[in-house]
Each structure stands twice: as structure tokens, then as C-alpha cells.
């Protein structure tokens, strides 16, 4: 139920970011519903597959989509007590996203063009450097909650009430930087570019068409939403429903939609004011993310744990 909502809502978030961004740049962009139209169009179209592609190329969209989907299923959206949460803790979520990325990169290399290989190579570099920062930020969170189950972490945050944790502040900053890198937004990657030399994500899915492309795009939007929900619910859990009854669910849903809209707004603003950086600046950027997360860990250990 919750999952269906996320899946249905993910294109909306992407569309929202896009249209806000267009507004900020004094353009009259497409409405926030445009991604749905794109999806419908792509699903109707015929699939063209390069003749050099193998079975991996055709299986990859499904793997990418389902693994992202499953990862999303483990993240509490509107209510805290998710029946699917114990199936996969946050490490498994990270693992599932990595599985999707693995196949995405393989698909990029499958056709045998230079672009695909280039995109795959860059994507793997970025994700490799983002991984320790992600883990460190997650460690900071899970060590104070003593659990890696997302439901438990969110619950811990709620029962604790408003407490200012310096470690959370740093972990949040680190995780935001990582999320921007992982979802391929400016300044690490530009989802709107089709200039060959600057593409990362787009270069890998260059050969896709029809429903394959639709699945790939949808998975990318889903990932964006996942990170948004993760950040919103773990760091600012207030408003999330405690029980599964419809009332609490409704309130929780309204709150999370508002939170996501705000995050989307922030993303659009930052994408407008920032420029994409060179690929070899990205390591420094992710180093900064790691530094934040490490500082979060340190300040957790120094300031917050009883010795």
C-alpha cells in the first residue's frame, strides 16, 4: 500500500523539482505531471535494442527497477511500523541500491559503445567514493539508536523528542551530499544534459528505448524519492504515523508530502545556483561528505556517549 504510493508518487517529485527549477530560471517549464505523460508515451512505444546487446542489456531494466523498488519497500513513509521493514535493514537497502547500480553499469557496457563504458566507469567511481561516507553517516545514526532497522531508528528519534545532536547535524550534511551524488543531480551529474562528455547516468542509459527506458527513468526517480524520504523521516521524523489506522496514515502521508515538497524545493534552488563540477573535483566533494560523516561519528563519540 505504502509502496504503491511511493512508486506512484516518485515521478511527481521529479516533475516538481523540474518545474520549480524552470520557474527559478525564469522559464515556463513543463508542469509537475509531465513525467507521467513521458512514462505513458514510453510504455506505448516500441522497444529498439542494439544488435550488439546481449541478454544482460534486456534484463538490466527489470533488475534495476525491482531492486530499487524493494529498497523503497523497507523505508517507512507515512507510518513508522512497516511490516516490510524487518525484512531489510538499512544496510540491505544500501546493498540493493548497489545491486541496481551494478546492473546499470553492466548495461552501459553491454552495447559496446564508448559512451556506455564512460558512464559506467564514472558511475562506479562516484559510487565507490560515496560508499564510505554513506556508511559513516548511517553508523552515526544507528549507533545512537543501537539498531539498523529503519523503523526502530525512526521510533528512537520520535521517543527522544527534540534533542540537538551535533552528530546528527554532521551526518545529515554528509548524507545530503551523498544523496546528491548518488541520485545524479547537479553538481555531480546533470540529469538534463545530453552533452556526451559530461553525462554519467544518461550515458549509461543512452541505448535504451521504450518500456526499458521507462523503467530505468522510473527507477532513477524512485531512488531520488527514496533518499528524500530517508532524509526526511530519519532526521525529521515528526508527523509520521505511529499506528496503521487510516487517520494516522492520512496525517503521516500529508506530512511526508509536505516534507518532500520542501526538500524538492531546496534541491531545485541548489541546482539553480550551482554549476556542475569537473569529474575530478567529485572526489574532493565526496571527501568532504566523508569528512562530515566522520566528524559526526567523532562528535557522537566525544560529546554524546557516556564514557
Amino acid at each position: 500500500m505504502q509502496l504503491a504510493l511511493v512508486v506512484a508518487g516518485a515521478p511527481l517529485l521529479a516533475g516538481w523539482v523540474k518545474s520549480v527549477k524552470a520557474r527559478l530560471q525564469n522559464r515556463r517549464g513543463p508542469g509537475p505531471l509531465q513525467p507521467y505523460r513521458d512514462l505513458r508515451k514510453l510504455f506505448m512505444k516500441q522497444v529498439l535494442v542494439a544488435d550488439s546487446a546481449s541478454i544482460v542489456f534486456r534484463a538490466a531494466p527489470y533488475v534495476v527497477f525491482t531492486s530499487t523498488l524493494l529498497a523503497t519497500a523497507a523505508v517507512p513513509l507515512a507510518v513508522r511500523d512497516l511490516p516490510t521493514a524487518p525484512v531489510a535493514d538499512i544496510m540491505v537497502v544500501v546493498g540493493l541500491l548497489a545491486l541496481g547500480r551494478f546492473f546499470l553499469a553492466l548495461a552501459g557496457m553491454d552495447v559496446g559503445t564508448a559512451f556506455g563504458g564512460m558512464g559506467a566507469s564514472r558511475e562506479m567511481l562516484i559510487s565507490a567514493l560515496a560508499e564510505p561516507a554513506t556508511l559513516m553517516a548511517i553508523f552515526t545514526l544507528t549507533m545512537s539508536a543501537h539498531s539498523t532497522n529503519l523503523s526502530t531508528v525512526v521510533g528512537f528519534q520520535l521517543t527522544q523528542g527534540l534533542v540537538l545532536h551535533p552528530s546528527y547535524l554532521f551526518a545529515l550534511m554528509g548524507l545530503v551530499l551523498v544523496a546528491v551524488a548518488e541520485t545524479g543531480r547537479i553538481p555531480v551529474d546533470n540529469p538534463a544534459t545530453h552533452l556526451e562528455l559530461t553525462m554519467v547516468h544518461e550515458a549509461m542509459i543512452l541505448e535504451y528505448s521504450g518500456r526499458h527506458l521507462a523503467l530505468m527513468e522510473w527507477a532513477a526517480w524512485l531512488k531520488l524519492t527514496l533518499y528524500g524520504v530517508l532524509i526526511a523521516n530519519v532526521f525529521f521524523p515528526w508527523g509520521i504515523g505511529e499506528t496503521t489506522d487510516p487517520g494516522a496514515f492520512g496525517i503521516g502521508l500529508a506530512v511526508i508530502v509536505a516534507k518532500l515538497a520542501l526538500l524538492g524545493l531546496a534541491l531545485a534552488v541548489s541546482e539553480t545556483v550551482l554549476a556542475k563540477m569537473r569529474l575530478f573535483r567529485v572526489p574532493q566533494y565526496l571527501n568532504l561528505a566523508f569528512l562530515f560523516a566522520l566528524l559526526g561519528m567523532l562528535s557522537f563519540l566525544i560529546l554524546e556517549v557516556a564514557a
Binding site: L48, V49, D51
Partner: peptide, 9 residues
């Protein structure tokens, strides 16, 4: 639109 057709990359 089930069938997949092949083309050059």
C-alpha cells in the same frame, strides 16, 4: 508493442 526489434547502436 511486445516485440523487440533490433537496430544499430
Amino acid at each position: 508493442v511486445r516485440e523487440v526489434s533490433r537496430c544499430e547502436p
